[in-house]
């Protein structure tokens, strides 16, 4: 038996009261209704807002509500509120580490910053013809994608 085990002894038999569970369910249901309702009225409510900003607001609201719901489930339903610090740490760990993956937006967010430096819009005089070395250009279009009416 470790010293940790004896410390947390009192918590391990915690029984979450019935009404706490009911209240949590109601909170979740209300939040669900709110997030759906917002999604329905958002196009009206954000009419004058530039689309990029509107999209940001929508994302923040939807993800914010989802976050609150997730925290409620983790804390009450999963009983993390009544658990030791170690369990709390592990409960947070996965979600925090998932955010680490967003570092890849250092790539996706900045890829286009370095695109065309060095190009000058002067017209190039093309003098000479093209070689007739056999070379099948282009990726063969995938047969299995059916995209009707591609060409005029």
């Amino acid at each position: 038996m470790s010293e940790h085990a004896s410390h947390a002894h009192d918590h391990s038999h915690h029984i979450t009261p019935f009404f706490t569970l009911v209240k949590t369910l109601m909170l979740l249901a209300v939040l669900m209704v709110v997030t759906i309702a917002w999604a329905q009225i958002a196009p009206e409510a954000l009419k004058g807002v530039p689309p990029a900003m509107a999209s940001l607001i929508n994302n923040l609201i939807a993800m914010g509500i989802a976050f609150v719901k997730a925290v409620a489930v983790i804390m009450i339903f999963m009983g993390v509120k009544y658990q030791s610090h170690v369990v709390k740490t592990y409960a947070a760990l996965g979600f925090v580490w998932f955010l680490m993956m967003f570092i890849m937006f250092a790539d996706y967010g900045t890829r286009h910053w370095e695109s065309v430096r060095g190009w000058t819009p002067e017209t190039k005089q093309m003098a000479l013809p093209r070689a007739d070395e056999p070379f099948e250009p282009g990726m063969p279009p995938r047969k299995d994608i059916h995209i009707p009416d591609q060409h005029h």
């Binding site: 029984i15 979450t16 019935f18 569970l21 949590t24 979740l28 339903f77 009983g79």
Partner: peptide, 9 residues
Amino acid sequence: SFSVALAVH
């Protein structure tokens, strides 16, 4: 989810 929490209860 609620009913599982209740089941544990």
